[in-house]
Amino acid sequence: MKPTDFLLCLIDASGGAVAGRTLLQKRAFFVTELIGEDFGLKFDAHYYGPYSPTVEGTATQLKNLGFLQESSTGFGIISDGFEMRRYDYALTDDGQYLVRRLRETPTYKRISDATRRILDADNPNYMELSIAAKAYFLLKKKAATGMTVADLIKEAEKYSWNISQESVRRAIEFLKSVGLASDK
């Protein structure tokens, strides 16, 4: 499945809209991790966690093609350095028309199931998902050294983001609930 179709399926499986491009990036990341397939998105380590230029470029392409609608909301400057302006994405009528064809494919079901698992895991917000994504990157990188969840919390504190212990705890809980981390 090509990246344009993947994003259309992901947004459809998320209820037809995703609130914020950070959330879109992180949700796409976790869905590819849960499915075990990259779909050409090539996530890379980044300051605010895994980031795929393909997700960003493809979302703009889909917007230009009239399959996604983008709306933005301003929040002013936020002290923790996250988005000051949130860009929400929603399928347009034309986008929904295309997705209807994709819904019949086995890949759509895999994307939909993985998205469901993420949404069911207490539906973390984009910030907690960002922490979880960055923590998961660390977990994967340091898996060989036997990193524990407690170690992860310590590592997360070093990110230089202004985040609470509670946010870190919820992010780790999210990783555990979708089966991407364990206490062992």
Binding site: T4, Q61, L62, F67, D94, L98, R101
Partner: peptide, 11 residues
């Protein structure tokens, strides 16, 4: 939409 996708987003 399907023609648009065919021309600009397809193989």
């Amino acid at each position: 939409p399907s023609t648009r996708s065919f021309v600009f987003a397809g193989p």
